[in-house]
């Protein structure tokens, strides 16, 4: 009987399968859509370092409140700096002038309170924005992680 070559062959089907796979732009070709795809190829804008400390809100709010206390203390010196009775005599008009000066002081303090509230609101919002960003980005990343694992 003539000798003929064996039909044995090597199964490299897994290699073929492997070589047919490729990762497309860093993501599995099965169709993961990165949530940040729209900004991946954009030039980085903003500071190279951005963030807030653990005590960001508490520390800055305290600094603002201390600053406001100093301003209010100076406004409280309005009546003690000089008195209308130095310039006017008459018990009723003196009292009315003192009341007027106090009213002016109270309006000034109201503006200062508005400033305090405005700045503290911004700081609280910055803290919330960072927290929200942290949550949003981690949701995106977890979704992409799952998609890659399933691809």
């Amino acid at each position: 009987m003539a000798i003929s070559m064996s039909s044995a062959s090597v199964d490299d089907s897994l290699r073929q399968e492997l070589m047919g796979k490729s990762v497309d732009s860093g993501f599995a070709s099965s169709g993961v859509s990165p949530n940040t795809k729209g900004i991946i190829n954009k030039e980085l804008t903003g500071a190279s370092f951005a963030g807030i400390s653990t005590d960001f809100e508490a520390n800055i709010t305290k600094a603002i409140d201390d600053y406001i206390s100093d301003v209010n203390a100076k406004l409280d010196e309005l009546e003690s700096t000089a008195s209308p009775s130095d310039a006017f005599k008459g018990s009723t008009v003196e009292k009315a002038l003192s009341t007027f000066v106090e009213s002016v002081k109270n309006v000034a303090k109201a503006y200062v309170t508005d400033l305090q509230n405005a700045e503290n609101q911004i700081i609280a919002s910055v803290h919330t924005a960072y927290y929200t960003q942290d949550t949003d980005l981690s949701t995106n990343l977890n979704s992409d992680s799952q998609s890659i694992n399933e691809s």
């Binding site: 903003g46 500071a47 951005a50 963030g51 960001f56 800055i60 600053y67 203390a73």
Partner: peptide, 23 residues
């Protein structure tokens, strides 16, 4: 004196520098 106190924001800005970075 009151105006000087109002314009003296350096204390707040220093604390910002210690606890915050970015634009």
């Amino acid at each position: 004196n009151a105006k000087s106190a109002i314009l003296a924001t350096n204390g707040i800005k220093t604390v910002c520098d210690d606890n915050w970075e970015g634009k």
